[in-house]
Amino acid sequence: MALSKKDIQQIAHLARIEVSDDEIADYVDKLSQIIGLVDQLQQVNTTDVVPMAHPSDMYQRLRDDEVSEVNQRELFQRNASAVTDGLYRVPKVLD
């Protein structure tokens, strides 16, 4: 299946990736090839096949409700380039 420029722009928006006009043709071309590859699966009969979300057939282990973490704000915020008063700064968030 071939993807359109509009498809690409829509999905790129969902994924928050800027795709400029000079890149879009390449995206259309390569993603259409990839989708063409994965479209092979449409031919497979999977009636009654249980989807496999995970290779492990184990169950979720539960953790005791204990506070084990201490405040390491300073350490963590060394990786952040925009911090004021301990808050991470971002462009204005609209409600």
Partner: peptide, 25 residues
């Protein structure tokens, strides 16, 4: 972008779920 596409509304069953079934096979 491929990943967002195969999970997006209307495509999940055809791609993601199908792939999980094939994974089972």
């Amino acid at each position: 972008i491929t990943g967002a596409y195969v999970l997006s509304a209307g495509y999940y069953d055809a791609y993601y779920l199908k792939a999980q079934q094939v994974r089972q096979l």
